[in-house]
């Protein structure tokens, strides 16, 4: 296996894992409005990082396969630009939902639901483009034009996409601890996984025992949650990451169906230099993300936001993010040591 391609696959897997956890947020927002505080507590600090991973993958691909770019550009210029446009809307509606004031024309619920719709469309486009790139569905033989009709002509294509979303919906219960009709979690996860794997096979994408083991683990997580009401996000995150990575590795080197990815590899000295940058940057990124996780868990353990729920204003937004800073009583002591007070330590 080529190291450069492996790195690209890992970045893609991390990106799609983040995106799928965001898809879980989308379903949660739509399905159960009571999930908003829990979901936003996860989503608010991390949405910027998810966007950055998208840029990371794009630029890494540009570095590794510059000669594939003209084909991708001509084939997917419309869906990619559309997804980018919607991505701005995704950011806007999410951040607006955090800061929206009481009695505003658009309330928080409305904004997160618009966000959900927009993000769902972004994910739909990205999964479709990803599927077309690895399977070649919809692309003409000269790789200059993309046909939506051609793409959808194989029923396995909508099956692949629907299977992914059904599984994500099933897992959203587990990831965010949704209680509303949680028996749906294993049911949707199972149906989704079955549809997804059958579609993969119909699309001539390789599956083997690894695929089934990972599918079984994901299903087991949802069953376990249904039975015990407990789950750990990290486990879901890792399971999803490994699943996406396994799809890439089992279909290693395939691009546009018949083409060989390695033939597009950048053979110039830029690749080696980029590898060094990836190593240094990747180490820094890992350290930053671990620090982020440390801070995130620290807040979780201390139940930071609970004390402020009765402070007036919009109950949901009061519990989230920096908006909270303004309604915390005595947040700023005159001596500049406000975070050392007993009350704040408890926070």
């Amino acid at each position: 296996m080529n190291l450069y391609i492996m790195i690209n696959y890992v970045i893609l897997a991390v990106l799609f894992t983040f995106l799928l956890t965001e898809a879980m947020s989308v379903f949660s927002f739509i399905y159960d409005k009571r999930s908003i505080p829990t979901v936003k507590k996860y989503l608010d600090p991390i949405w910027g990082v998810i966007g950055t991973f998208a840029v990371f993958f794009i630029v890494n691909t540009e570095v590794l396969y510059p000669s594939i770019m003209p084909s991708i550009d001509y084939l997917y210029v419309f869906p990619i630009l559309l997804a980018t446009l919607l991505f701005i809307a995704r950011n806007l509606f999410l951040v607006f939902s955090e800061y929206i004031w009481k009695n505003a024309k658009f309330n928080q619920l409305m904004l997160v639901r618009i966000y959900s719709l927009v993000t769902f469309l972004v994910l739909l486009i990205l999964i479709s483009v990803f599927l077309s790139i690895i399977s070649g569905m919809g692309a003409n033989s000269t790789l200059t034009a993309f046909s939506v009709a051609g793409f959808l002509s194989n029923p396995a294509v909508p099956g692949f996409i629907a299977g992914a979303f059904l599984t994500v919906f099933g897992l959203s219960f587990v990831f965010y601890g949704l209680q509303k009709t949680k028996f749906l979690s294993p049911a949707f996860t199972l149906i989704g996984l079955l549809v997804f794997i059958l579609s993969m096979r119909a699309l001539n994408l390789t599956t083997n025992y690894i695929t089934y083991i990972l599918a079984a683990v994901i299903f087991a997580l949802s069953v376990l949650y249904y039975l015990t009401g407990k789950a750990r996000r990290e486990v879901i995150f890792i399971a999803v990451f490994l699943s996406i990575l396994s799809i890439n590795l089992l279909n290693y080197g395939k691009v546009f169906g018949e083409k060989v990815l390695a033939s597009y590899l950048n053979n110039s000295a830029v690749s080696s230099a980029a590898l060094a940058v990836t190593a240094v940057g990747g180490a820094l990124l890992t350290a930053f993300l671990l620090f982020f996780l440390y801070m995130y868990r620290r807040s979780d353990n201390k139940e930071d936001y609970d004390e402020n729920s009765n402070s007036g204003g919009n109950e949901i937004s009061d519990k989230i993010g920096i908006a909270n800073l303004y309604i915390m009583s005595n947040n700023n002591k005159e001596d500049g040591k406000e975070h050392k007070t007993r009350k704040n330590r408890k926070r």
């Binding site: 990082v49 830029v270 980029a274 820094l284 982020f292 993010g321 920096i322």
Partner: peptide, 27 residues
């Protein structure tokens, strides 16, 4: 393309620390 690639990590630095700075201010 190397600078563009390096920019991604600068971008990460900004995004991650901004998230921590703002959302975990009181921690």
């Amino acid at each position: 393309i190397l600078p563009l690639y390096m920019e991604v990590f600068a971008f990460f630095t900004e995004a991650i620390f901004l998230g921590i700075y703002i959302y975990f201010w009181n921690k």
